[in-house]
Design a protein around this nucleic acid. Structure first.
Lengths: 159, 159
DNA sequence: AATATTGCTTGCAATTTACAAGTAAGGCAG
DNA sequence: CTGCCTTACTTGTAAATTGCAAGCAATATT
């Protein structure tokens, strides 16, 4: 954990890559946004199976960059809860564009068709709903009050 | 150059990361879009200074993924020209969101203020202009007919 | 009081990267 | 047409990073 590594350039693309551009960080942010994961153990259990030491170093890096904050969990003091800061929430549009691209080009994509439809219908609206949802402790796909469930209801009510 | 590497998951974020999520690929796409670079030597000369063997392996990977195509240069047959496919051009929105985020959070960002202003004014319009420009062999920042120059003219004429 | 869970750290082998030095094919100047 | 330069790579090797397995301290559970 040293990283006395001078930045390669001041290019904004390079800045983004140096901040969250390793092969794992965005998966953690995905877990936070789409799946409502918050603890070390939950991240570790993701289907991509990242190694525990890598997970620890990435979480530390993201925390140091001000993208996530770590807080001891109130209910169970063994646990730490990680949540996105404003700076982290502002990465949602990046995730969304990557997901859009993959949904278009990966024939085996796991992105739910209903969700893709919603995103195509009103990108701006959905991004602000995503942000609001995650900020309030919810997630896009997981849980009773997931954004996907709530927007599905909105659609069926309004139709 | 083996890569008999099974994919980690069908998650669209993971698909994107496995396709262009290494620390260098997006810098090459940036070079193609913003700086109009097309040859091996031009990529190699980028200020981030990537190693020649890494450059070769990334270009091969991007070509294999159908994001760039390689063609012998007509004027000088020693040269190869790399250009973006449709699939590659569709990554422009990803670049744009990353650049927006960095412009907001990196106090030393090299992103031109005029460009940031244009992007904030009309994201959709600018993305389609970027795409069109690159498809016609131009670039966003470099050259007489760079998109930045042309849009500046549009602004000054219309004001 | 004993056992399980949680969030890590440590050690080491395997992979990947960075740096330096080639090499082959196409231009180009005399 | 001959020697030299440029261009796009490849190859070898040392250094850094990653992946895997095991261990550990603090809290929770029984």
């Amino acid at each position: 954990m040293k990283h006395t590594h001078q930045r390669r350039s001041d290019c904004p693309i390079n800045f983004a890559l140096e901040t969250f551009g390793d092969p794992w960080s965005l998966l953690l942010i995905r877990d936070l946004v789409y799946f409502g994961k918050k603890t070390y153990g939950e991240f570790l259990a993701s289907e991509e199976g990242m190694a525990t030491n890598i997970l620890a170093s990435r979480l530390a890096h993201l925390e140091q960059q001000g993208i996530v904050v770590k807080r001891p969990c109130a209910q169970d003091k063994r646990k730490e809860e990680y949540t996105l800061t404003e700076k982290g929430l502002d990465l949602i549009p990046v995730l969304v564009e990557m997901a859009n691209w993959s949904a278009q080009y990966d024939s085996h994509t796991a992105a739910p068709a209903a969700w893709i439809t919603l995103m195509q219908a009103d990108r701006e609206k959905m991004i602000s709903l995503m942000r609001e949802t995650v900020q309030n402790g919810g997630s896009v796909f997981v849980g009773e009050n997931s954004l996907l469930n709530r927007t599905r209801q909105m659609l069926s009510v309004s139709s």
